[in-house]
Design a protein around this nucleic acid. Structure first.
Lengths: 222, 222
DNA sequence: TCAAAAGTGTTTGGGTTACACCCATGG
DNA sequence: CCATGGGTGTAACCCAAACACTTTTGA
């Protein structure tokens, strides 16, 4: 056996990039301008290049650079799906899906190679309405669930938080992700217990009313 | 773009098969009889065959059949790892790891294709001592952690349980997996709350002492 | 009658929810 | 001085840990 006596699957990376837009958790999608599922929306993705990519995560970062024009911090492996009839371009396609959270404005103005249209679409709906190309809706559904689980255990989505924030802002972000209200008091106590955030000495921010203490993530988790 | 203009990675499946042996959680390993890491122990695995396998899970089942001579129930995707220098047989290797739990006796007497030596080795140690071929120790470490997490939330490892069991046996199994004692009373109450097991009507089993009610998994979770 | 395991109840404590209440500021 | 969000305290509650206790069998 050994070297390449069997044909190998067409291997791709797909990116589940989440952000908060207005009041909603959204996923980044691109419109397909080419043959399979032309005109449909899909996750941004690209082919694994064994000549360019040192490992899976580098590959995902390269794809992010090409398609979205940006590096993605806090990128995590989400899942792998593969099978015969997933993508008509190849008899057997394997997709490795990565997940990231970003601030929506971080890549507002940078379309990438072979990408003409980009949109942020509501995560919950997209996950359930099955409207995306290939099996991308299912991938998103799982990613949303995993993201929510993380936030429930206060593994904060640093990618979509500003470097510094007030606890009110942080809570609001979490509420949008989870799509449910949180109790202010318990939220803060839980944060304090696991010390995942630290107060920025002296910094206060006054919006319209009483100024709030500014925090940032503890270096440990950030 | 499209059809195969780029070389694709050497794509494999690796199996993390757990069982209880004596008092310990163990992982199934095979000794490599061929070139890379010859003589070292490794996870059983095999090459993805796009001509034979309909999807990733079927591929894993085929590999299980060939190497271990058995079907693996309750098989779950564990992780994906890929990179340039993981396996000297190919410039770029991608491994999809699956995880399963079985009863140790289910495959005691069935070596498979190209497998001469098989062993069950302590899961905790193997995970930490880094003695396996390739990066398989790291894969096992993650798999052990995920398995323990599941058992902590009473997602029972049906694969390694007999069809019918007493609550004492069930608790003992869980304790071996978690490597810590559990409280009988709370264990039973938690089981009851989530009704994951159901009493088998009338069935009692007397070993040496007071006979115990026999249970089986609820169809829901089983 | 004793050992051993099955099975049950009761107390305690940690952590979260729900909600009330004060504080500081701009208008 | 009032509306608004920041910030803190308290009681109720849920769940699980800890542990004591009763029950039922074989030896």
């Amino acid at each position: 056996m050994s070297k390449q006596i069997y044909p190998m699957p067409f291997t791709r990376l797909e990116l589940c990039v989440f952000a908060l837009l207005e009041t909603e958790l959204t996923v980044l999608q691109v419109r397909r301008e080419e043959a399979p599922s032309k005109g449909k929306w899909a996750l941004p993705g690209g082919v694994l290049r064994i000549d360019l990519d040192a490992d899976l995560e580098s590959a995902a970062q390269r794809v992010a650079g090409e398609r979205l024009g940006t590096h993605l911090p806090y990128l995590r492996l989400q899942t792998a799906v593969g099978g015969k009839s997933r993508d008509p371009r190849s008899p057997w396609t394997l997709s490795i899906a990565y997940r990231a959270t970003v601030r929506a404005d971080a890549l507002a103005t940078s379309p990438g190679k072979r990408v003409e249209a980009i949109r942020w679409a509501g995560a919950g709906e997209t996950a359930s309405d099955n409207s995306l190309a290939f099996d991308h809706s299912a991938i998103i559904a799982a990613a949303v669930q995993d993201l929510r689980n993380e936030v429930e255990n206060l593994e904060l989505p640093w990618g979509l938080l500003p470097a510094e924030f007030t606890l009110g802002e942080l809570q609001h972000h979490c509420e949008m992700i989870l799509d449910r209200p949180l109790d202010k008091s318990s939220f803060r106590r839980r944060l304090a217990d696991r010390d995942c955030v630290e107060a920025v000495r002296g910094q206060l921010r006054g919006a319209a009313h009483r100024p709030a203490q500014v925090y940032r993530g503890c270096p440990m988790h950030r």
